[in-house]
């Protein structure tokens, strides 16, 4: 009985400790949310483009981005894969992401940190590069509905079949 109580208390303590320290169980679970870019290596905050990324539980993602002088967001989508803390993905047009990333969190999971990884052909990490931080936020649905959809890898928005 005493042993059972001790085990129970230990378990409760572990859970309490886990909860009180804000530890997210896995990167795979913690990344599922909508995020907006708040910091990027080498850029001042006011110079950052507007970027929203929605990582979904079904391993799909959507990106809404405004990079440069454009009136509407451009929407990209595709699938991602996360193994441990390594994140990679592919756009629906068949293009790979520009990099593989290391996933980490700050502020009790409220901040997502994606660190670009330089890898060799075998996928071995050679170095770490650009660091981007994201906070949880959603893009207004009206902006999403008005976004231009990028469907081909090298064509302009709402690409024609040609």
């Amino acid at each position: 009985m005493k042993k059972a109580i001790n085990i129970f208390v230990t378990l409760i303590s572990a859970v309490t400790l886990a909860v009180s320290c804000g530890i997210i169980p896995t990167a795979e679970e913690g990344i599922v949310a909508e995020w907006t870019l708040t910091e990027m290596t080498g850029y001042e905050t006011e110079d950052l483009p507007s970027v929203y990324i929605d990582f979904r539980a079904d391993k799909s993602f959507e990106i809404y981005q405004k990079v440069g002088d454009v009136p509407r967001y451009r929407k990209y989508d595709g699938i991602y894969e996360i193994s441990g803390s390594t994140l990679k993905g592919e756009y629906s047009d068949g293009e790979d992401w520009g990099s593989t990333y290391k996933v980490s969190f700050q502020a009790d999971g409220a901040v997502l940190v994606l660190t670009a990884l330089e890898t060799d052909k075998s996928g071995n990490v050679l170095s770490e590069g650009e660091v981007c931080r994201y906070a949880k936020a959603s893009l207004d649905q009206k902006e999403k509905d008005a976004a231009d959809v990028v469907t081909k890898s090298v064509e302009e928005v709402s690409a024609r079949f040609l």
């Binding site: 290596t41 993602f61 990106i63 756009y91 293009e95 990333y101 994606l114 670009a116 990028v150």
Partner: peptide, 16 residues
Amino acid sequence: VSIMSRGVASDNGGWL
């Protein structure tokens, strides 16, 4: 052409 250089660049202009 406006150019933005950063540590990552995808072929289709997507952010990630």
